[in-house]
Design a protein around this nucleic acid. Sequence first.
DNA 1: TATGAATGAGCATTCATTCAT
DNA 2: AATGAATGAATGCTCATTCAT
Lengths: 225, 225, 225, 225
Amino acid sequence: MSKDDRIAVILRTARELIREKGFENFLPLEVAQKSGISEGMVYKYFKSKRELMERVAEDWFEEFLNEAPLPAQDLPLRDQLFQVIWSSLMSIKREPALTRFVLMELRADPNYRNLPTYRQSRRFAKSVVDVIEQGIQRGLIREDLNRKLVRDMIFGAIEHATWAFLRGEDEEFSVDVTARGITDMILDGISTQKPLTTEMIERLEHMVSQLASELHGVRMGPPAD
Amino acid sequence: MSKDDRIAVILRTARELIREKGFENFLPLEVAQKSGISEGMVYKYFKSKRELMERVAEDWFEEFLNEAPLPAQDLPLRDQLFQVIWSSLMSIKREPALTRFVLMELRADPNYRNLPTYRQSRRFAKSVVDVIEQGIQRGLIREDLNRKLVRDMIFGAIEHATWAFLRGEDEEFSVDVTARGITDMILDGISTQKPLTTEMIERLEHMVSQLASELHGVRMGPPAD
Amino acid sequence: MSKDDRIAVILRTARELIREKGFENFLPLEVAQKSGISEGMVYKYFKSKRELMERVAEDWFEEFLNEAPLPAQDLPLRDQLFQVIWSSLMSIKREPALTRFVLMELRADPNYRNLPTYRQSRRFAKSVVDVIEQGIQRGLIREDLNRKLVRDMIFGAIEHATWAFLRGEDEEFSVDVTARGITDMILDGISTQKPLTTEMIERLEHMVSQLASELHGVRMGPPAD
Amino acid sequence: MSKDDRIAVILRTARELIREKGFENFLPLEVAQKSGISEGMVYKYFKSKRELMERVAEDWFEEFLNEAPLPAQDLPLRDQLFQVIWSSLMSIKREPALTRFVLMELRADPNYRNLPTYRQSRRFAKSVVDVIEQGIQRGLIREDLNRKLVRDMIFGAIEHATWAFLRGEDEEFSVDVTARGITDMILDGISTQKPLTTEMIERLEHMVSQLASELHGVRMGPPAD
DNA sequence: TATGAATGAGCATTCATTCAT
DNA sequence: AATGAATGAATGCTCATTCAT
């Protein structure tokens, strides 16, 4: 078996083990046994247990990035955002144990910013930010937003929904419903109609009133409810 | 030293150690030494290392809940929400290591729902949900919202912002700015103005058209559909 | 509460705890708590945990010796032996945990021969040996027996039956049946009745019959019962 | 050193340590040191201290069972029984500490019946029971015996004799004498010749005397020895 | 006399990593 | 290249006993 095949087998086995037992119980010895090789070989190809785990996470993330291509720019904004959030939730639902590893272990690593996973995470985050920027350029999204915060909110919502799923709180966890909810809330907020609109209307009403008074010498009030 | 004082000392020391070294490196022996007592004493008052850590988290959460009283119901909705988010971020900024412990260890515990921390977390979540409900009743927030999702989004945003801070990504992390940003985004969403307003504007346009036609004998208006 | 009362309470509590949890899990702290006194008091009256446990065993043994008086010497031998064995099994059945303590811990102690329990054990063993001796004197038991071995066999049988009971193997463990079985086997052995004896008698009977017939012309049968 | 050799060394060392210090003071660390290996190696081949000790007991028992082959069926019953009892006592005399471990620790284990030692113990017990059954079939042993009780008595006698030896009470402990004594007592019981027989003979003597006196006018006494 | 806080030695077990073969 | 035996530091937890108050 070639070196690359060997590595592929180890990575696949390791991913299975993480999926089955959780990353806290992941043992290099088991990877070797399940791969039909010796422990020494695992350490030949991966400097340490940690490196192996990081590579597993990296591969998984890479797959995700490839499977979830950038949303087509000619789609409506809402659809683009939905697609990005939906892919993310879907991927998490498929590999909850790996998700936990990335969220809990890698992200807490002081060295996180030098890890490939960090860059991957940035790539994905960028695809979200790109959608936002596009929305801004099209005039559909407010310009005055803190981009970082928008990104945090989107991912925050995704992750928080994920935790509930990982803890088994939401047995009926539906990727579609959750993704739709997050998308709408991000775009529309939770308020009912906007006060600014009213103000503008009031201003218009004022103008109309003035016109009317010029015409008839009579001051019109706002339309009765 | 009285039993209660002893317990207090242990808890304080333990909290310091978690703060300094992170919960992964927390050793009961060190707690004892730093408290000037024997390891056995720690185990006299706390059945296990885990229980001690949970108590530290619990006390911290309790302090937070006491320090962050329910927002006054007569405040504007936006201020109430801001206050809740601000307290949360503030508390996290003060004890990042404990936050990590709660978010990563406790929340991932299969038994999480039976822990005091879970109930505390619910209490806090409830205070947020209460604000939302009140907004709905006042007609300021849409009725058709998935409450759980709103809650997830708010906490998700808070936590995600927290992670960036914990990782030292945002050195200039400002509780005020972040809380303000989250609050506004939750309430208003990120979109520009709302199409529904159009109806009202159409009515106005109609009024203006009539006025204008009276003035000039010409019908202005939007193009007929 | 007087000193003696105190001691009595401690001993009673200790016995209950040994009964409930087994002697391996016996904790002085629990004795104190259950007795409503402090741990220090336990150590005031008993030099060590071991001494306390030995005293519990001693008291129990003493009770047994008092409750199981010497078998009346005018009873048939078999009844005396049965009584002794029966009392022993009965006492064991009542306090299995204490029995285990004596059999496993005390008896294995290098210092066992200096313990009160040893002397008590000897007292009880003597009562058995006395029955045997009496049997010998009455001509009912062979003289050439190794007394020590007889004693070992009797107690061995009792203890082995006990172990099965302690392990829960014989749920239907009946003191009566077991005591009866042991008694009979000890007295009679397991061999069938000696064929030679009967044969000889028959031969003699045959000879006598012939003599009689020669004398009287009449055939005598065996004597009517 | 091969895996099997290593295991053998560990088992041998462990057995020595148990022999020297008793099973209560048995430390895995010491096994490793005395075997010239690290503690980790002990745990590589044996999941736990307990498992190691059980394996030591198991091997010892297996050796015993191999060294003490089934008694030849054509031997007299008494010789077969003697042989079985003798082997048992001999093995115990060689490894008193292991005997204590089996009798006290293993046999008290709630899981005892699932241990290999239990099955070994059954195998040996069966060889005894087989001898008994054979005796019954040959008409040499009473049919109406409670087999379980016979077995208990034999082993009880063996074990009780063992205990005395283990405690050093019988310094002159002789396997031959003890085995002989137990065998005889089991087979013959402790009673003198059966009184009924004597009685019958006396009656016969009486009849014979009468006949004789009728014949010769002379009173006959009991037959001279 | 009574308390109960305090001690601290003692021990089983794990597992990432190395390296002789 | 490949093996897998070997390492050994690290650590949570127990509990009989003491002694200051």
